[in-house]
Each structure stands twice: as structure tokens, then as C-alpha cells.
């Protein structure tokens, strides 16, 4: 059965120049094991096809059951250069939480 990532995690996103940062935090230890397994850089890159045009980097923060992703070349130039409605990637954490994973 598939579930939405939204059901087992929350998070926050923002900008670092033209890169977006997306932090995803699991609600419990079981959820953290699941996101560590499911949220590979390849899957995240594929999920953001047409949004992220650069490399995806992944970092682990097991102490707070979190993963942090840097999505390069994602914000249309960043800052005031970007023409995007969401130029700072504020809604991209929610966009990642749309992902469906095995329950």
C-alpha cells in the first residue's frame, strides 16, 4: 500500500542562493528509518523533475530524525533575479511531502 510522505513527516524549506534547502523531519524513529530508505537523492531528483535542474545533495541529522536536501539550480536564479512566484522555495517542503512511498 502507498502512503503520502506527509503522513509520517513534516519539514521546512528555504533558499540558499539559487539552491533550495528542504529539511524533512520524521515524526518517530520508524518513520526516520523509512525516509532514510525511501528519500534517496535519485528519487528526490526524479520527484522534482522540471523544478530542480541541478544536483541533489542529502545530509542526515539522526539526532532530530531529519534529512536535509540541497537542490541546486532550482529557484530560477534566486533572490530578486528569479521570476518565480515562489522564488525562495518556501513551498517546496510541502511539494516533497506529496511523494508517495510504500507503507
Amino acid at each position: 500500500m502507498k502512503i503520502k510522505l506527509l503522513n509520517i513527516a513534516h519539514g521546512r524549506s528555504g533558499d540558499k542562493g539559487d539552491a533550495a534547502n528542504i529539511g524533512i523531519i520524521a515524526y518517530d524513529d520508524k518513520g526516520f528509518e523509512k525516509i532514510k530508505k525511501e528519500l534517496t537523492t535519485e528519487k528526490v531528483k526524479k520527484h522534482f523533475e522540471g523544478i530542480c535542474f541541478g544536483e541533489v545533495e542529502r545530509f542526515e541529522l539522526p539526532n532530530i530524525r531529519a534529512l536535509n536536501f540541497l537542490l541546486h539550480n532550482t529557484l530560477g536564479g534566486g533572490g530578486t533575479v528569479s521570476l518565480k512566484h515562489d522564488a525562495q522555495g518556501k513551498t517546496l517542503a510541502a511539494a516533497l511531502l506529496r511523494m508517495e512511498i510504500d507503507s
Binding site: R12, K16, E57, F59, I64, A66, N68, L70
Partner: peptide, 17 residues
């Protein structure tokens, strides 16, 4: 709470180490 602080911890960071 744990959750509200944790969300801010992961905000606009790169390599957490």
C-alpha cells in the same frame, strides 16, 4: 515544542556538520 524547534533547525542549512 520539539517539532517547532526542529523545523527551524533544518531551515536554510547546507551540510549540518
Amino acid at each position: 515544542s520539539f517539532a517547532t524547534v526542529a523545523e527551524q533547525l533544518v531551515y536554510e542549512i547546507g551540510d549540518p556538520k
